[in-house]
C-alpha cells in the first residue's frame, strides 16, 4: 500500500490536484501562503509526527504480539488473534467515540491516568493513541506469516553452534523479520497519515495544537474555500509521497542486506 500511494501520488493525484488548483486559478504565492501558514504547519507536524510515532509503537508492539501469537499458547489466544483485525474492520467513527470514551478524563482508562497527571484525550497524546490503534493490524498481520514460515532449523543451527537465545534472536531471527517489520511500519504510517474519523473525536481539534491536516481540509471545505482545501490536500500528498519514498528506500536497502 505504501508503494501504491507513492506511485499514485506521482501519476494521478498530484497532477489531479494541480489541475484542480488551476481551475481555481490559485497563483503560486497564494498556494504557498496557504500551504505554509502557521495553522497548516502545526497540522503537518501533528499529522506526520503522530503517525510516525504511532507506527513506531506499532512496530515494537506488533512484533511482540506477532511473536506471542505464533510461538506460544495460552487460554484465549484464538480469540485475541481473531480480534487483531478489529481496528481494520471497525468503522472509524465508532473507534473515534469509543477511544474518547475510554481516555477522556472521566473515561474508563482516563480516570486512572488523571490523578497521575497524564492527560490523553484532547491532547497530542490522544492523537498518538488513536493512530496506534488503527495501525495495530498492519504490523502484526505482516510479521505473522513470516514467523510462521521461519525455518526452525536455523534456530537449531544457531543453538548447536553455541549461541544463547538472545544471540540467536539478534543475529539470526531478527534479520529475517526486519523487511517485514519495515513493510508493516510503512503500511501503518500510510494509513495513519490520512486517518480522519478515529482521530477527530479524541483530538479535540484545537487549531495549532491538536488539529490534524485532514480536519483542516474539512474545515476549509465547510467555509467553501475549495482552493485552500485542495492546496492542503496536494501538500499532504506530496509530504506523504516523500516520506513513503524514504521508507521504500529503507525497505529496498534492508531487502538487499537481509534477504
Amino acid at each position: 500500500m505504501g508503494f501504491t500511494l507513492l506511485y499514485l501520488s506521482l501519476i494521478v493525484l498530484i497532477p489531479l490536484g494541480a489541475a484542480f488548483l488551476k481551475t481555481f486559478t490559485m497563483t503560486w504565492s497564494q498556494f504557498w501562503g496557504t500551504v505554509t501558514g502557521p495553522r497548516a504547519l502545526a497540522s503537518y507536524r501533528l499529522s506526520l509526527g503522530a503517525s510516525l510515532i504511532g507506527a513506531a509503537i506499532n512496530t515494537v508492539m506488533g512484533l511482540m504480539v506477532a511473536w506471542v501469537l505464533v510461538r506460544y499458547t495460552f487460554p484465549g489466544k484464538r480469540i485475541l488473534d481473531a480480534l487483531v483485525d478489529l481496528p481494520f474492520a471497525l468503522p472509524t467513527a465508532v473507534a473515534g467515540i469509543t477511544l474518547t470514551a475510554m481516555f477522556a478524563p472521566n473515561g474508563w482508562v482516563g480516570r486512572s491516568l488523571e490523578p497521575l497527571g497524564i492527560k490523553v484525550a484532547f491532547t497530542e497524546l490522544g492523537v498518538v493513541v488513536a493512530l496506534t490503534f488503527i495501525g495495530l493490524p498492519f504490523v502484526v498481520r505482516t510479521v505473522e506469516p513470516i514467523l510462521q514460515d521461519l525455518d526452525p532449523e536455523i534456530e537449531e543451527a544457531a543453538a548447536t553452534l553455541g549461541a544463547t537465545r538472545w544471540q540467536s534472536w539478534r543475529r539470526v531471527i531478527f534479520p529475517e523479520l526486519m523487511p517485514g517489520l519495515l513493510t508493516g511500519f510503512a503500511l501503518a504510517f500510510a494509513r495513519a497519515v490520512g486517518e480522519y474519523g478515529s482521530v477527530v473525536f479524541i483530538s479535540g481539534n484545537m487549531p495549532m495544537r491538536t488539529e490534524i491536516t485532514p480536519f483542516l481540509i474539512v474545515t476549509k471545505l465547510a467555509q467553501f474555500d475549495y482552493a485552500g482545501a485542495t492546496a492542503l490536500a496536494v501538500a499532504m500528498l506530496v509530504m506523504s509521497f516523500v516520506l513513503l519514498l524514504f521508507i521504500n528506500l529503507l525497505q529496498w536497502w534492508s531487502q538487499s542486506r537481509y534477504a
Binding site: L8, I217, A229, L237
Partner: peptide, 15 residues
C-alpha cells in the same frame, strides 16, 4: 488504480 481509494485519506476521496 484499484488501490487508489484504499491508499488515500477518506477526506481527500470526498474532496
Amino acid at each position: 488504480l484499484i488501490d487508489l481509494p484504499f491508499s488515500i485519506s477518506p477526506v481527500i476521496s470526498g474532496l
